[in-house]
């Protein structure tokens, strides 16, 4: 693996070397290493689509799965389907991420469709990072789709981060929750230049006492544009909270569209959305500590997205 590929892996998966536990590394559309463990099996798909199936045995604890994707070619487009089957009462960490380095002038594009079947009582922490770099004028495009089916009393925590270098992203996440299931989403996005990011969440709270907490923090700088949509449907006694907190700078544009539907008198749903520039007094306070205006802005953004 060359230095560039190592750098991308580090960015998207915090990987310095071959990871512990199960992993599958995909590089420019091809397998570049895979390991299954006793309890976590990774297999090629059998339906003809590119991608893998990941089977996690019931009661698997303290194990992790890394599935980074690295693209270093220009003019390369792929669509990959990965399906996760998480057994009952398992408790695992799944780290996915995609790094694109495009130094050509053509577009590189990765569309990943991740489907999670979360067994009863299982807990999953899913960490996903998107990163792009390149010195050409080629565009880096990522369009991840995440589909989550949660059985009773399961918990799915999703942390998704896109900090740099993705010119265009259109993310669609849908989740369906049964009784007692919990979904937690923490999304962080920073866009600059002429980048565009759209994220859309649709959550169906179908089971009694299910709950969802979908929080997005974002910063839009330069001429970038962001759209955040979050739709929560409370179909029974349940609780849902969605929050969009965005800092807007320069000539950027941010749209937040929270949408709540209660189909039951016992559904408790809340949305909060705030878009605004960095508070002037925050910059001034940091300037009184000796930071320049620009350093102050950087610290405020770094903290906000950390």
């Amino acid at each position: 693996m060359d230095e560039l590929e190592k750098m991308l892996l580090l960015q998207v998966a915090d990987l310095h070397r071959v990871p512990d536990g199960a992993y599958n590394i995909r590089k420019n559309g091809e397998g570049d290493g895979r390991r299954s463990t006793d309890r976590i099996r990774i297999e090629d798909r059998k339906d003809g689509h590119a991608g893998i199936d990941i089977f996690i045995a019931p009661n698997t604890k303290n194990e992790s799965v890394h599935i980074p994707v690295v693209i270093t070619k220009t003019d390369y487009r792929e669509r990959v389907y990965n399906d996760f089957y998480v057994g009952e009462n398992a408790d695992v960490l799944i780290i996915a991420g995609c790094g694109i380095h495009n130094c050509g002038v053509e577009t590189s594009e990765h569309t990943g469709v991740h489907t999670f079947h979360i067994g009863r009582g299982a807990k999953v922490r899913y960490v996903e990072k998107h990163y792009g770099s390149g010195d050409g004028n080629g565009e880096n495009i990522m369009n991840p789709a995440t589909v989550i089916y949660q059985e009773e009393d399961s918990r799915f925590e999703m942390e998704s981060t896109q900090i740099k270098g993705i010119d265009s992203t259109d993310r669609e996440t849908t989740a369906t929750l049964k009784k007692g299931a919990e979904l937690v989403v923490r999304e962080k996005i920073y866009t600059h230049g002429r980048q565009f990011a759209r994220t859309n969440f649709t959550v169906d709270l179908n089971g009694e006492n299910s709950g969802a907490d979908v929080v997005s923090r974002s910063v839009a700088a330069d001429d970038s544009r962001q759209t955040f949509g979050s739709r929560i449907n409370g179909n029974t006694a349940c609780h849902g909270h969605t929050e969009c907190d965005a800092i807007i700078m320069d000539r950027a544009c941010v749209t937040a569209v929270p949408e709540l539907t209660a189909n039951s008198v016992d559904a408790e749903l809340i949305h909060e959305a705030a878009i605004g520039k960095i508070a002037g007094e925050q910059i001034i306070k940091l300037m009184t500590l000796g930071l320049t205006e620009q350093e102050a802005e950087e610290q405020i953004i770094k903290g906000f997205l950390s």
């Binding site: 300037m287 009184t288 930071l291 903290g303």
Partner: peptide, 27 residues
Amino acid sequence: SVTERAKRGISFAFQQPVRFKGITVKD
């Protein structure tokens, strides 16, 4: 500017302290 004065050795504790999302006390 505020920054230049701070660098020269002037400090100011605000009457109404400013809050920051994400910046820790240690930061």
